[in-house]
């Protein structure tokens, strides 16, 4: 099955490794990705927060380009996903207002975790795991934009989502039960008010730690960057790295976690290297 692919700006720049892992996972699942040609920025929070017209017309252009390809659209970034879905909602409600043809073909816009947590993909991931991530306790962190507002995102379990738990479960990792799965990390304020971001991120990381998590796992590049960069850590209180779900999938399916990937984290990612190493040793002993 083919999907139109909207990487978005983060995945072309600061989260380039997220893009690579998404493409690798889709290849393993037999999903073809066709990049939307000449896509533009979705406008992120800054556009819709300050201009309704610009905030809608930027993602709309991408939808018109996607309509030409005709496939469903896969979006790995939660912020881009929410903006494309918001534009879709307005567009379908009143194409005339947005100067868009009324007979635009129907296609779905899907966020990466909803796709990967479909039963057939979970089963396929489970079968392909080479080294299970046993003993790794993770706090699944969704943040805001793949879930809210459910009128826009279409999310059903927006207060109690399960997609990330199901994905890491298929990899053999353990999901802790914790309080801050859908709390906001204030990524849109992180440059202008780092103090607020530090406070919110501090609460999130403390909650994950209380629940016994060794790391967080997310599907939002804004959250990943913000939660790693705004947490305080020290020699006595080491930080918690934030992994992308697809990064963990690649590690479990390949049975390795390259040091070059680990180095991209702003907080030490040693915990994942250790888990992968231990799993490899156990496998050798068994063999």
């Amino acid at each position: 099955m083919n999907y139109s692919y909207y990487p978005g700006c983060s995945l072309s720049d600061t989260a380039l490794d997220y893009d690579r892992s998404v493409r690798a996972v889709c290849a393993r699942l037999g999903l073809g990705l066709v990049d939307i040609p000449d896509w533009n920025c979705c406008g992120a929070s800054s556009a819709h927060m300050t201009s309704h017209e610009i905030g809608m017309r930027l993602p709309l252009r991408n939808l018109l380009l996607a309509a030409e390809l005709g496939h469903d659209v896969l979006v790995p970034c939660a912020a881009c996903f929410q903006r494309l879905k918001a534009a879709e909602r307005s567009l379908r409600a009143d194409p005339g207002y947005w100067d868009v043809p009324a007979d635009l073909p129907e296609f779905r816009i899907v966020h990466i975790s909803s796709l990967l947590s479909e039963p057939q993909h979970l089963a396929s991931l489970g079968e392909q795991v080479r080294l299970p991530l046993e003993g790794l306790s993770l706090a699944c962190y969704y943040g805001c934009l793949s879930l809210r507002h459910p009128k826009i995102t279409g999310a059903r379990n927006y207060e109690q989502p399960r997609a990330l738990e199901e994905i890491i479960g298929a990899l053999g990792a353990n999901a802790v039960s914790w309080s801050h799965r859908t709390e906001c990390c204030s990524g849109s304020l992180t440059m202008a008010r780092p103090d607020i971001a530090e406070a919110l991120v501090g609460d999130i990381v403390a909650a994950a730690r209380r629940a016994g998590a060794q790391a967080l796992v997310t599907d939002c590049p804004m959250c990943q960057a913000n939660v790693e960069s705004r947490q305080r850590h020290s020699a006595t209180q080491p930080g918690l790295p934030v992994f992308f779900a697809t990064e963990l999938i690649v590690a479990a399916l390949d049975g390795s976690y390259p040091a070059s990937q680990g180095r991209l984290h702003l907080v030490s990612a040693q915990v994942l290297s250790n888990v992968v190493k231990r799993a490899a040793e156990q496998r050798e002993e068994a063999a």
Binding site: S45, H48, M49, C144, L145, R148, H149, P150, I152, Y158, C184, S186, G187, S188, L189, R193, I196
Partner: peptide
Amino acid sequence: WLCAACETCAT
């Protein structure tokens, strides 16, 4: 200006 547009309130 400090509202982070997280949509928790509206949800």
